[in-house]
Design a protein around this nucleic acid. Structure first.
Ligand SMILES: [Mn+2]
Ligand SMILES: [Mn+2]
Ligand SMILES: [Zn+2]
Ligand SMILES: [Zn+2]
Lengths: 143, 143
DNA sequence: CTCCCAGATCGTAATTATTCCGATGTAATT
DNA sequence: AATTACATCGGAATAATTACGATCTGGGAG
């Protein structure tokens, strides 16, 4: 998903491209990682100092509804957002101390198919799978 | 895990058993499901009208640290707590509309072992695996 | 059984994250 | 250029969680 591909997809869906939305998209696409709402606000403020949290959240939820963005809810209540690179579905290894993360290659597809079979009445839309613990650095520092 | 087993375990660990803690334990053990902090507060208030949120949260986090309670962070930012029945590790099928849930029998153990092998430097402490969608009732109502 | 005190609770205030709202601005269509 | 539906802004409101000083108490020592 490049920026231009995404923009034309949005136009096709009749979604207005405002400068703020464009900037939020750029932030999300810049690095392949997740962001907190605050991080996104701070980054966009560099170009649009007046942008409000309202706009950030509204845009993120709009993008989420359009399938462009994923919302991640981590242990401890941390909410994060990341661009949904369709071709690269993945899960995370999350450090409970420093918050750093690694992408995982593994997705429990066999469990998912079994659950679909066992609960055909339930309309599954998404799943989460996260591994928590302490990264190499933090496990040494302990505390 | 019965109430008495849990209590003697707590005593063994030198944890004070206060009436409020006992009552919170009873609520958690009463039904095999998860609770919001507010639900627990309301239930305990029936016996201890003066109990504060502070006590509820402190107790839940204490129990979590002792391994008695699990903290669940669901899509949408809902935080829930449930008694950790050691023998019955499980995951959840969660309805995004009404919030109802079903226990799942399936746990992605093969993924977990693979991840442990691939990231030996990371000290894994826990994992989450939740399935989201719409239950039979809500998928019909749509909206 | 009573005394004692580390630690638990209460009441309330502070903090944090998120959502709401009225006024104003603007992208895209006519 | 005018129109309008929708976006944004600034700031206030709400909700969830945490902090803190004053007070209380579970349970061990004597
Ligand atoms: Mn990711
Ligand atoms: Mn459960
Ligand atoms: Zn997956
Ligand atoms: Zn599991």
């Amino acid at each position: 998903m490049t920026l231009n591909e995404t923009l034309s997809r949005l136009k096709g869906q009749g979604v207005k491209i405002t400068p703020q939305r464009l900037e939020i998209l750029k932030v999300l696409l810049d690095e392949e990682r997740y962001y907190s709402a605050e991080e996104i606000l701070k980054k966009v403020q560099e170009s649009y100092p007046a942008i409000s949290y309202d706009t950030v959240y509204r845009t993120l939820y709009l993008f989420k509804k359009l399938g462009l963005v994923l919302e991640l809810n981590f242990q401890g209540g941390y909410r994060r957002f990341e661009f949904n690179r369709q071709d690269r579905h993945h899960h995370h290894l999350v450090c409970l101390k420093c918050g750093c993360s690694q992408k995982l290659s593994c997705c429990p597809t066999d469990c998912l198919t079994r659950i679909k079979e066992e609960h055909p009445e339930f309309a599954i839309t998404s799943h989460s799978f996260e591994i928590y613990g302490y990264c190499e650095v933090c496990r040494k520092v302990k505390s």
